[in-house]
């Protein structure tokens, strides 16, 4: 009985708080895994620093500008895609965390209810 009370004290006290913190940690971790900060800061940077140095003639300069623009566009799309994917996963993680934290206090009640249903039919 003492242990049951201790369990309930923990579950509805520090345990719930811990679960909430873990949920926040999951969201932060997912966001970190996609290094969103770096991707945003370098969103328009050339892809892997692939750049063409401008030549002397106007034609070369135009060609270099075009090449570099393409590199930046490729970089933008790759990063934007990664950011989008990261955003979706972060949102999913947040949703999961929210559900878990919300469901946390209900879980023991669900246990009691399911025992009751399994017995009463």
């Amino acid at each position: 009985m003492v242990m049951l009370f201790e369990f309930l004290r923990w579950w509805y006290g520090p345990g719930w708080l811990d679960a909430g913190q873990k949920a926040v940690g999951l969201v932060v971790g997912t966001q970190k895994a996609f290094s969103a900060g770096v991707l945003l800061r370098t969103l328009f940077s050339p892809w892997k620093q692939i750049v063409t140095l401008p030549g002397r003639s106007l034609n070369d300069k135009l060609k270099a500008s075009l090449d570099n623009l393409i590199s930046r566009v490729v970089g933008f799309f790759a990063r934007a895609l990664a950011l989008l994917f990261g955003l979706v996963l972060t949102a999913l993680a947040a949703l999961f965390g929210l559900i878990a934290t919300t469901a946390w206090p209900v879980l023991p009640l669900f246990l009691v209810y399911s025992i009751y249903r399994s017995v009463s039919g």
Partner: peptide
Amino acid sequence: FKQIGWACFAAATAALITALWYRLD
């Protein structure tokens, strides 16, 4: 089989609660 299904839910929930208690506390 609903009644047995509830029994399974009860056992799974008990296992989940115990696993969480073990892991976090």
